[in-house]
């Protein structure tokens, strides 16, 4: 889902930058204000783990396509949406700069999709699901559903950006949104399972993180 340089039209990638950079800055300021000193090492370690998990490409998609975890939902649900936004923004920056995974012009779009949208959707949907699903089992189910929604929402927005860049990408919204949405609805099942497991594990060993 990392969009390389050259796929998005100038209007689209500039707009994405204009939207995402202020949100990342705002999330960073809020995170610094709200996150306790004791949580910082664990947040840093989990973000590094998310970077590692993103390297695994599992071939479960339609037509033999592969997918990878984005990891945003687990960061956002465990440490809050600001942490998901900041953590993924750092990961995407390192990936683009050092490994050529995602472009520089498209960094705004990639953060808008995988950092911002996935964080907000997964965190707030998790809170909603928790109203319906109580207890330990409910935590796993809510985490799983929110994780799936997080990656699917990021994919749909990615499809929107690509479809709006028809001049450079070649396909319109009628193709890009279904392709990205349907494939990630399948690939996202793994994200859901891993998020549910992570939320369960952290809820068991660090329940105070979920007291908010």
């Amino acid at each position: 889902m990392h969009i390389p340089d050259g796929y998005l039209s100038n209007k689209v990638w500039l707009t994405c930058y204009a939207i995402s950079l202020p949100i990342i800055a705002f999330a960073y300021i809020r995170l610094k204000r709200k996150m306790g000193k004791m949580e910082v090492p664990l947040f840093s370690a989990l973000t590094a783990t998310v970077f590692a998990l993103q390297m695994v490409n599992y071939p479960l998609g339609p037509g033999g396509t592969t997918g990878h975890l984005i990891g945003t939902p687990m960061l956002a649900i465990i440490f809050g949406p600001d942490a998901g936004i900041v953590g993924l923004s750092v990961i995407l920056f390192i990936q683009a700069l050092l490994f050529g995974d995602g472009g520089i012009t498209t960094y705004g779009a990639n953060t808008l999709n995988m950092a911002i949208t996935a964080s907000l959707v997964s965190f707030y949907s998790y809170l909603l699901f928790r109203r319906a699903f109580k207890g330990e089992k409910g935590r796993v189910i809510s985490g799983g559903l929110a994780g799936w929604l997080g990656i699917v929402s990021a994919a749909l927005l990615c499809g929107l950006e690509l479809g709006l860049s028809r001049a450079t990408f070649g396909y319109g919204l009628n193709i890009t949104i279904p392709v990205m949405g349907i494939s990630h609805a399948v690939l996202g099942l793994v994200e859901g399972v891993i998020t549910g497991f992570a939320v369960y594990a952290f809820g068991k060993y660090k329940p105070e993180l979920f007291s908010r």
Partner: peptide, 8 residues
């Protein structure tokens, strides 16, 4: 699981 061939 190193081969990447994403929908994109």
């Amino acid at each position: 699981l190193s081969v990447s061939y994403e929908p994109l």
